[in-house]
Every structure is written in structure tokens, then in C-alpha cells.
């Protein structure tokens, strides 16, 4: 069978099963499977961070910690939320170029920036939390060990995240290569 023999079948394929109301729902964020999940994650993380920032002064003796540790924690906490927002907007509108290859090139550029922002903001937020809770403590060998363990875990998680970003970027670079041969 030749490819041209498939033209008829191809042009007949596909149904018209979606009505106007169903299609309208799909134009809304609430009808988008991935955006709905990201929005829920964003709301939960923002909610938890807000509760934390409102209560940490009393619950975790924030007033007794140095001012710089408080500022660092708030700034990097907000940066972490900003990173979630950036991801949300990327998913919201991911097709931008005049051609398919242009769009993929644009997507790679955004993903590269977002990967750096995501990994850096996560590391900084993690470090600011560790710093906040460790300032003012009297360290002994055990506490140093726990601190080292926390830093190593944070770095390992960040490395894993960096590798996932790298895989995504490589996937799209390979796709462009498939087009250009």
C-alpha cells in the first residue's frame, strides 16, 4: 500500500463529537487538565507559605532570629512562589512562533531560563529555611551532622530537578534536529 492510498482514509478520520458547550468549557482554565493541577499546587503552596509567614514569628521564635534571616526567608519564599507562577504562565501559552520550528526554538529558550530560575529558587528557599532554623542554635557534632544531611539532601533533590529540566530541553532540541535532519 502506498502513502497516497491513505489520503482518503485520513481525510475521513476524526469525529465531530464535541458540541459548542463542551468546546467552550475547554477554553477555560478550569477545563484544562494540567493547568487545573498546577493551579491547585500553586494555591496550596501559596497558602502554606502564607500561613507559615504569618505564624513563624510566634511558632518558630522568628523574633529571636536575626533580622537578615527573617528577610532572607521571606524573599526566597516569595521567589519560590514566583517560580510556580512562571511555570503556570508557560503552560498557559506555550505556542508562540510563526512556524512549528520557531515555536520549539522559543520553547527551548524559555525552558532554559525557567530551569535556572526553578533550580536556583528552590535551592535558595531550602537554604533560607535551613539558615533560619539553624541560626541561634548551639552546634555540637550531632547537629552539624544533621545540618550536613539536610544540605546534602537539598542539593541531591536540586540535582534531580536539574536533570529533569535537562531531559526536557534535550527532548525538544532533538525534535528540532528531527525536523532539520
Amino acid at each position: 500500500m502506498e502513502l497516497d492510498d491513505l489520503k482518503g482514509s485520513w481525510q475521513q478520520a476524526g469525529s465531530s463529537d464535541k458540541n459548542n458547550a463542551e468546546l467552550r468549557k475547554m477554553t477555560k482554565v478550569s477545563g484544562h487538565p494540567k493547568l487545573k493541577r498546577i493551579r491547585a499546587k500553586l494555591l496550596i503552596e501559596t497558602g502554606l507559605l502564607t500561613v507559615f509567614l504569618l505564624t513563624y514569628q510566634d511558632a518558630f521564635d522568628g523574633a529571636e532570629k536575626p533580622l537578615w534571616a527573617n528577610i532572607v526567608l521571606i524573599v526566597f519564599g516569595l521567589l519560590f512562589i514566583l517560580n510556580d507562577l512562571a511555570g503556570y504562565f508557560l503552560v498557559m501559552k506555550r505556542v508562540k512562533g510563526a512556524t512549528i520550528v520557531d515555536s520549539l526554538v522559543g520553547l527551548i529558550t524559555i525552558l532554559k531560563k525557567l530551569s535556572v530560575f526553578s533550580v536556583v529558587s528552590s535551592v535558595l528557599f531550602g537554604l533560607s529555611l535551613i539558615l533560619f532554623f539553624s541560626t541561634g542554635l548551639v552546634f555540637d557534632d550531632n547537629k552539624y551532622l544533621i545540618l550536613a544531611g539536610m544540605v546534602v539532601t537539598l542539593l541531591a533533590l536540586s540535582y534531580g530537578s536539574y536533570q529533569r529540566w535537562k531531559r526536557q530541553i534535550r527532548h525538544f532540541s532533538e525534535l528540532i534536529h528531527e525536523f532539520s535532519g
Binding site: W10, A13, G14, S15, S16, D17, K18, N19, N20, L23, R24, T27
Partner: peptide
């Protein structure tokens, strides 16, 4: 927009 999509939705299905 919705009318156009409804009319040509087979493209998306394919």
C-alpha cells in the same frame, strides 16, 4: 471561534 472549532474539530482528533 467556537463555531470554527466545532466545524473543523476532526483536525484536532486526527
Amino acid at each position: 471561534f467556537l463555531e470554527l472549532i466545532e466545524e473543523h474539530q476532526q483536525i484536532i482528533h486526527r
